[in-house]
Design a protein around this nucleic acid. Structure first.
Length: 488
RNA sequence: GCUCCCUUCGUCUAGUGGCCCAGGACAUCGCCCUCUCACGGCGAGUACACGAGUUCGAAUCUCGUAGGGAGCGCCA
């Protein structure tokens, strides 16, 4: 049985705790909490989950962990959805919202209490705080001491929390795909709260119920969760479920090696889109953080799917390096088909207030600009002159390149270009070198003034290609305008 | 404080006992190409955290030390 995506917003009722797993179809999930934007770390986790599911023809489930009613926002949910969509990490099921599954959690909690596997605790927050403070003072690990574990009475007027009865002895073994065998002593764990005094379930508990209900086979997440795993495993076992495969990914650090946080280098993945990065480049960069395939640096999405394996993932954290991302971005721009880049370029031009409609011209721009731009945004910025005549000329460049003979030289070139019927780069090239040769000038002495005249600056694709894209009429108009500006 | 995790060039990494006085990539620097800017080519410097042990032989195995990180919440 495969679960198909239920109609959006519908209450999920595929709660099948003891339902035997009928197939070994891989099922991964990405489970962000919507308390902020999706950043690069979250995207990498999502990518690994997605790749693993794709590689094994499994399902990638999206689950929104919004049990923290205080901090979850609809805007954050939308941001996450937009980020994943931009990256192309489409999910097969979901998004499922934990807030829509409260009834299910409540049932499981009751089941646990009835089975003697959980109990109500009437401690006040103050009481717990005091307990922790005392333990810390004694140099002990702060943890709940189980004072209500064996009680069955209640405190009138006090709303209790529900705690999971964690085993007191023995050990929990997490066979992690990335970290290997990690052993935890149950004596180090305490009875964690699974339902707050207002009745709402807590994170660690919801995760367990969801992973079980959604029949997740591979839990791939950040290794900041490694410490949570033994608790979750104990609950899973108490619910009679079998454990999924765990893979705890190393964290991504900021450029300086410090933890990536909101105020420290972490930005929304959508910002990378705005800065002109291609999603496939960002994914390529991310897949190489903690994973490698020999010396290969460049991966298409297809190659990633084909080659990625969770068992090859590294254990150590890695620092985010924009320079390498930028290099990869250019590599992807250069290797992609021009038609792949055109819509992105158009989007960035649009943001500059330029409405570009000529598809063929845009393709030419991509072809001539992509090796001189590291991002599509940079490409757009460098290409503005194709759409808008320069409003002025780079002064320093004028001083350097516009000598007394330049106006006459431009007139000569303009005359010859005017005769040209075949407005193509090779023919334009012939004219320019012919004029330069006739005047016994190196090509640069002529190309730079022309460039300055049509672009306003000294940077552009090769001059023949530039003029070819610009078109005959526009080229002649700009040459004429520059000539009069420089004749004075 | 306690528990758990991590440690190869500045950065991402290759490396699973001899092929490694450590390979690739980004970045840096130099040279070449060149109509600008790039792309591209060639080259240079830079790393096995430290200490013991096992072994004929260790980046690779073991132990310890140091450093970094995570968790210990009625946050996720």
């Amino acid at each position: 049985m495969r679960l198909s995506a239920p109609p959006s917003g519908g209450l999920l009722d595929f709660a099948l705790p003891n339902f035997p797993r009928l197939s070994m179809t891989v099922r991964t999930r990405f489970a962000p909490s919507p308390t902020g934007f999706l950043h690069i770390g979250g995207l990498r986790t999502a990518l690994f989950c997605w790749l693993y599911a794709r590689r094994h023809a499994g399902s990638f489930v999206l689950r929104i962990e919004d049990t923290d009613l205080e901090r979850s926002t609809p805007e954050a949910i939308q941001q996450i959805l937009d980020g994943l969509e931009w990256a192309g990490l489409e999910h097969d099921e979901g998004p499922f919202y934990q807030t829509k599954r409260f009834d299910r959690y409540k049932d499981v909690i009751e089941e646990l209490i009835a089975g003697g596997k959980a109990y109500r605790c009437y401690c006040s927050k103050e009481e717990l705080e005091q307990m922790r403070a005392q333990q810390m003072a004694r140099g002990e690990k702060p943890r709940y001491d189980g004072r209500w574990r064996e009680r069955s009475d209640s405190l009138p007027g006090v709303a209790p929390v529900v705690r999971f009865k964690n085993p007191l002895t023995g050990e929990v073994v997490v066979d992690d795909v990335v970290h290997g065998r990690v052993v935890f002593q149950n004596s180090e764990l305490d009875d964690l709260i699974i339902a707050r005094s207002d009745g709402t379930p807590t994170y660690n508990f919801c995760v367990v119920v969801d992973d079980m209900d959604m029949q997740i086979t591979h839990v791939i997440r950040g290794d900041d969760h490694l410490n949570n795993t033994p608790r979750q495993l104990n609950m899973l076992l108490a619910l009679g479920s079998q454990a999924p495969v765990y893979a705890h990914l190393p964290m991504i650090l900021g450029p300086d090696g410090a933890k990536l946080s909101k105020r420290h280098g972490a930005v929304s993945v959508l910002q990378y889109r705005d800065e002109g990065f291609l999603p496939e480049a960002v994914l390529n960069y991310l897949v190489r953080l903690g994973w490698s395939h020999g010396d290969q640096e460049f991966f298409s999405i297809e190659e990633m799917i084909q080659l990625f394996d969770i068992t090859d993932v590294n254990k150590s954290a890695s620092a985010f390096d924009v320079d390498k991302l930028t290099w990869l971005n250019q590599q992807h721009m250069m290797r992609a088909s021009a038609s792949r880049i055109v819509p992105v370029l158009r989007w960035h031009l649009d943001r500059e207030g330029i409405l570009a409609t000529d598809e063929a011209q845009l393709e030419e721009i991509v072809r001539s600009q992509r090796e001189r731009a590291k991002t599509v945004r940079e490409m757009a910025l460098n290409s503005v002159f194709f759409f808008r005549a320069p409003i002025g000329y780079d002064e320093k460049a004028v001083r350097k390149h516009v000598t007394a003979d330049v106006p006459a030289l431009l007139a000569e070139v303009a005359d010859q270009l005017d005769q040209l019927t075949d407005w193509q780069a090779p023919a334009i090239h012939q004219i320019i070198i012919r004029v330069a040769a006739a005047k016994d000038l190196p090509l640069g002495k002529l190309a730079q003034p022309i460039r300055l005249a049509v672009c306003g600056g000294t940077v552009s694709p090769p001059i023949d290609a530039t003029l070819a894209i610009l078109g005959k009429a526009e080229t002649l108009a700009r040459l004429s305008k520059a000539r009069s500006a420089w004749s004075a």
